[in-house]
Design a protein around this nucleic acid. Structure first.
Lengths: 192, 192
DNA sequence: GTGCTCTTTCAGAATTTCCTGAAAGATCGA
DNA sequence: TCGATCTTTCAGGAAATTCTGAAAGAGCAC
């Protein structure tokens, strides 16, 4: 081998590049799978597939991406990409990044798991818990004066639901305004 | 008035019945509103409108109802009523009641708020948390060996998500297996 | 078996949600 | 102002979900 160093070098180089491209391939596969599956899960979570896919893509992107890159990666239309990117920005799960000398916008995901959790928790509270509370409150109020046994039972049921949901609401606030470390500490105590 | 007791009596009777029917009316209105709104909310929660409506209807029903009564009350088809009643039974939110001398089935809702909560929490965990964990686990595993910086970053992100979701899963188990009183005690401490 | 009542299933219709592609709107440099 | 580039909107189409109504199944009394 020492007689033909350039050959050895070529050989090693080819092995090296093969490993690198194999690895890159493996990574791309894993990431694509993550994006696809996370998208499918999104529907279960009540958010649309594309939004979940974009979120997955950007959570695992080493660099911020443009709308066009997202379109290309997920093979979706401009309208779809745009709408869902902006929706994610509105949630607070993505940030818009502007680079100097660049006209177009780049998007970057919040990657901190606890941050993601608190954002999602707040949003779900707003969309799911608060409207429920409003309804329960109204129905409890409207049935307060009714004296019949059925009326009483209805009112009681409303009150119980209202109390519980109100309670859940406060808990949600409390937990999602905690610092990560504190929450873990608390939860650890709970799990022990 | 004492001269015509029968008239007074009639008068009072009419006032009495009027109040009763007014009350019954008010109750019906409040209940209908609850059913309608709860149904609308259901879509936000990722369950379908009819299912949520049936649940609301039965949670506020003084007596178990039959399929036909549910159909009439909500003005829906037999197929729809049947499917959603059975789905609610599968969740554990309704029980089938058989009355002696009756061929048809009656349905009765679980009314205890804490029970409802634990049932829903368990179901959501099964449908939302566990599949997510499976995906994260798989993607973390597939990227374990990758040495490139991007690969490391991806693997780390998967691990962080996996840890957090696994944690949430355990918390959910722990909380929903608690007795009501204990949970309230804990939560109160948390809220103080 | 026959008739009656209640339950279950499911093909196709209705509805809702989501996506595309194209056009209009903004911003900026020349 | 014009042209180039990027962003935003939205009408109409595609896809997914939900509902209906009718037919088939199941159990029971006679």
């Amino acid at each position: 081998m020492l007689c033909f160093p350039e050959i050895a070098c070529l050989f090693e180089f080819s092995v090296f590049t093969e490993n690198v491209s194999e690895e890159a391939d493996k990574l791309k596969k894993a990431r694509d799978e993550f994006v696809a599956q996370w998208g499918a899960l999104g529907t279960q979570w009540g958010i649309n597939r594309t939004m979940a896919q974009i979120h997955a893509l950007l959570m695992t992107a080493p660099e911020p991406l443009t709308t066009d890159e997202v379109m290309a990666e997920l093979e979706i239309s401009r309208g779809n990409a745009h709408t869902n990117l902006k929706e994610l920005v509105a949630w607070g799960l993505l940030r818009v990044v502007v680079k100097k000398g660049e006209r177009r916008e780049f998007f970057e995901a919040e990657k901190d798991v606890w941050q993601i959790f608190t954002i999602v928790a707040r949003e779900r509270k707003r969309r799911e818990i608060e409207p429920a509370l409003a309804i329960l409150n109204k129905c409890a109020e409207e049935s307060r004066e009714i004296k019949s046994p059925e009326g009483r039972a209805f009112h009681d049921q409303m009150r119980q639901l209202e109390d519980f949901v109100g309670f859940a609401s406060k808990m949600s606030d409390r937990v999602s305004s905690m610092k990560h470390g504190l929450a873990v500490q608390l939860a650890t105590k709970l799990l022990s």
